[in-house]
Nucleic acid binder design. Structure first.
Lengths: 211, 211
DNA sequence: TTTTATTTCAGGGTATACCCTTAAAAACGC
DNA sequence: GCGTTTTTAAGGGTATACCCTGAAATAAAA
């Protein structure tokens, strides 16, 4: 009896790559592949998939929302997030949302199998260096000044609003706070990111998968 | 005698996917794979590779610069750009820089083989819908107001400078023009992109591979 | 050569972003 | 309960971004 898994990725090559990695392994069987969020939500209904390898950067949604929906619909499903960017803080957010594993796309066969077995046993799987970084509580020195970049909940909301091209005034109305408070948050984000202005923090946010 | 190709991609899965697609084809042989720009430049020296499948989003450089360098060093090499984003204007820039083909990562085996044969015959290969869009001279309606997003040389320079978090004053000094001129350019970029401010144009620029 | 697009720059604005400091609630962690 | 972090917000600025109009000098394309 082999493990039945499915893969969601919008790149045919990645699907092909994983299938290729697993084809001569009897322990795992890829029963279905999807290329977007909608397909995945619908397609898993008729299958008895145990693990889903889920690409985070899908065209029609973001990984966090989709994994939330999936876990609500299929509580027993194990999800391993597949991604390109090895950002500890992003991984953390995914794990907080119930995802069972976080795997970089430059993984190899051995690691892939280990990840599958780990999540099936009910444990959380993290790549070696990623778990280290989570433990040491320090993400890669991405900020220019080497400072920790850990945004608070409110700062993150302001960041999102800035990325929506809203003005200070509009953000204050959206979040029901004073414009002065918005300015404080923005200044703090700029400080944390080592940026010079809003353009800088948007670049950082996109690079680090925060948007 | 089969076609000897190499692949550069920082994702093991993609490498594996392409190799898998080509393994039962005698016409093509993958003689080497690389995961970054430096490796590629060095590694191709000792090989007689005819075609390189090159990922555009490498960690240590951008695709345009690398393909320029490669073509300078290996004038007979055929390069097929591999990418995730199907942007006509970006493809156009790549082709202008001497790249021989532009292939999305959600390609399949048949198309991959066709692309390889096409570039080897000295022709340019473009995916079906991409060539259509280039012909019709209209890129996907990505700007919010549906306008064409084609920046002039100078506008592009200003855009880069804005993305470097420079102020109007600093940009004017960098480009040896009046601050007023910089403002004009920025306004025009905002207009063309349908953005509301600099944050908006940076987002657009990143999404469209202009940065 | 004549049209068309690009680059340049100005006056004269208003709105917005950003800086520095200070500080009081509120929520969180232990 | 007590230290810590977060969230809130103020005063009082200066610098910068962005808007509108108009226009001349180049450069490129037809």
């Amino acid at each position: 009896m082999s493990i039945e898994i499915a893969i969601t990725d919008d790149h045919e090559l990645v699907l092909e790559g994983i299938k290729s990695m697993l084809q001569d392994t009897k322990e795992v069987e890829v029963v279905s592949t999807f290329s977007n969020a909608k397909q995945t939500l619908k397609g898993l209904d008729d299958l008895s998939v145990e693990v889903l390898l889920l690409d985070i950067n899908l065209p029609d949604t973001n990984g966090i929302d989709l994994s939330k929906q999936l876990l609500k619909k299929f509580p027993d499903l194990k999800i391993i997030a597949l991604t390109s960017h090895d950002d500890a803080s992003f991984a953390k957010r995914m794990l907080k949302n119930g995802v069972h594993g976080y795997l970089l796309k430059n993984t190899d066969k051995i690691e892939l199998l280990r990840a599958l077995k780990t999540v099936l046993s009910g444990e959380i799987y993290l790549q070696k260096d990623m778990s280290d970084r989570l433990l040491y509580q320090r993400s890669k020195p991405k900020a220019k000044n080497g400072l920790n970049i850990k945004l608070t909940r409110r700062e993150h909301e302001v960041l999102i609003a800035i990325s929506e091209e809203l003005t200070t005034q509009q953000i204050s109305e959206k979040l029901f706070i004073s414009p002065k408070t918005v300015e404080t948050h923005r200044s703090n984000i700029i400080l944390k990111f080592g940026a010079k202005n809003s353009v800088g923090i948007i670049k950082m946010a996109i690079e680090n998968g925060l948007l």
